[in-house]
Design a binder for these strands. Structure first.
Lengths: 195, 195
DNA sequence: GTCTATAGCGAGATAGAC
DNA sequence: GTCTATCTCGCTATAGAC
């Protein structure tokens, strides 16, 4: 089957998402034009609309697929039984997952304001599900007496904020290895919730 | 001294900064137009340029004055002598200061990407000075044996990220008082760096 | 599936009257 | 100091040829 010259459906879609993710993370959704994305992909702006409904739909798909992947990755992770082991697993998973996807993380946290109301609600629900994972671990550990956490929900917010902050300073060329970064955060999280 | 009708230099300037701060925090710098700010102030867009050189200068002034105020407020705070007391003072100060200025905080963290290179360097230097305050407290405490912190710099990043996260969930109408929120964060910070 | 061309709109910033 | 009017530019999104 001959294919029309200039037809690249299998590669333009992924390239579009990759270019948009990189540009949105670097400059912000509102500051990046469709023309700029198209130039990065190597097509004209109009051609992008074969793959997305509009710019807003592109942002939503990037954020939704990131959070879907985050939840799926956690659920398939082999875990121990006790709350302490679960907390260590969560801490190391969160640091590792976020360091592997700095652009997607940046967008998921910074571009909530630019979502349409309906899209915002969908993304917030996914984020809330992830926060609840940690909240449940902390609550279980507190019930077992392994942790001293008066307010599981707000403690979960605090821990997630601390862990996610790693993306603002970590660089692969830096002094610390990823394993050392995991250890550093696990040490602080373990003590912060300890009895 | 008669004043020209329609002349309001003393109030338009502050109103411009207040309107810009609220709108930038809510919708993002790139998504807010000068016309929208002018409408909020109650003047035409052209009149704004009597007070600012351009939109970029407006953003820079908002961010710089916020960080100047942050550093000045810390420096005039009465403090104890030991590292433990200094850490508690810093924690409570940071939470209180940030809860009082949610819009300014939001802009200072989210709009770095939209600063011109020279402006970015100036803002980053101020932020770095503030991080160093906490870093020095942690280093001193580690030297005294009061804290167990292997890496003062990255521990400071982690603590600041955790504390600043309070602005993402705290609401005045919520269940917790500000004093309770301060206590919650101080409890976690104290343990996280404890020996 | 991609192209060129463009409709339709709103942006930042300036000029000059009052 | 603020107004109206406007310059110039870039934006999202679509239409229709290939």
């Amino acid at each position: 089957m001959a294919r029309t010259s200039g037809s690249h459906s299998e590669i333009t879609g992924p390239r579009l998402r990759a270019a948009a993710q990189a540009l949105f993370a670097r400059h912000g959704y509102a500051a990046v034009s469709m023309r700029r994305i198209a130039a990065e992909v190597g097509v004209q702006a109009g051609a992008l609309y074969n793959y997305i409904p509009d710019k807003q739909g592109l942002l939503f798909e990037l954020m939704k697929s990131h959070l879907d992947e985050l939840l799926a990755a956690w659920q398939t992770l082999p875990k121990g039984v006790g709350a302490r082991d679960a907390l260590e697993a969560f801490t190391r998973f969160h640091v590792r997952f976020h360091l592997d996807r700095p652009d997607a993380v940046f967008i998921a946290y910074m571009e909530l304001r630019n979502l349409d109301p309906a899209n915002f609600r969908a993304i917030e629900a996914l984020r809330r599900r992830y926060e609840t994972v940690l909240e449940d671990i902390l609550r279980q550990g507190a019930a077992e007496g392994a942790f001293d956490v008066a307010d599981s929900k707000h403690a979960a917010f605090a821990v997630i904020a601390m862990l996610t902050g790693v993306t603002t300073w970590y660089r692969d060329e830096g002094r610390l290895s990823r394993a050392e970064v995991e250890d550093l955060y696990w040490s602080m999280v373990r003590k912060a919730v300890s009895a």
